[in-house]
Amino acid sequence: MLKDIDLVVGRGEKVVVCGPSGSGKSTMIRCINRLEEHQQGRIIVAGIELTSDLKNIEAIRREVGMVFQQFNLFPHLKTARYYLERVKIPEQADKYPGQLSGGQQQRVAIARSLCMKPEIMLFDEPTSALDPEMIKEVLDVMVELAQEGMTMVCVTHEMGFARTVADMMVFMDRGEIVERAPPQDFFANPKSERTRLFLSQILAH
């Protein structure tokens, strides 16, 4: 359940969303391409208002790429050459997902979204299902994408990545946006008590 979400992401902006589990981060970004339905309010994506009209939904989905925590590659289809260069694994063309490592699979998933030439990329905890040594290769690709000017909304707890690329940090809890701020303010002096507690927990080590 989400309530009182009021978020504007400008063209080329990078937003990193964080918060405890069950806080509605995933639900929020899944509303953007209608993997979840919103009951109230308005969502406007790439100039198109999201309604239950199928044409509208498909038009928006063409503008929005999405990368999932569990990759969700299609196990029966082989990788094609397109865009594998962009994610730095051109040599992995013509393979089944099952033949690739986790990091490679996630990079293929990014390449797959890029094939649609989207205006906006959504990342739903893209590194949470990866072994630690593979996280960096995926983040590197994401950083590069950000530097090329892609509009990005990332749900992630990779705070190093957030510091590097985010224009805005959003902290959510219990379905609400509790705090939003540029990363330097967000990390240096969070205004909300809940944000401070959350940050102290994930940055403890």
Binding site: N33, R34, L35, L54, E58, R61, R62, V64, G65, M66, F68, Q70, N72, L73, F74, A109, R112, S113, M116
Partner: peptide, 15 residues
């Protein structure tokens, strides 16, 4: 078929 497969196809705008 896992739900993720459907979602990934939807997210690609496959219809």
């Amino acid at each position: 078929i896992p739900k993720g497969q459907i979602e990934a196809a939807d997210a690609l705008g496959l219809g």
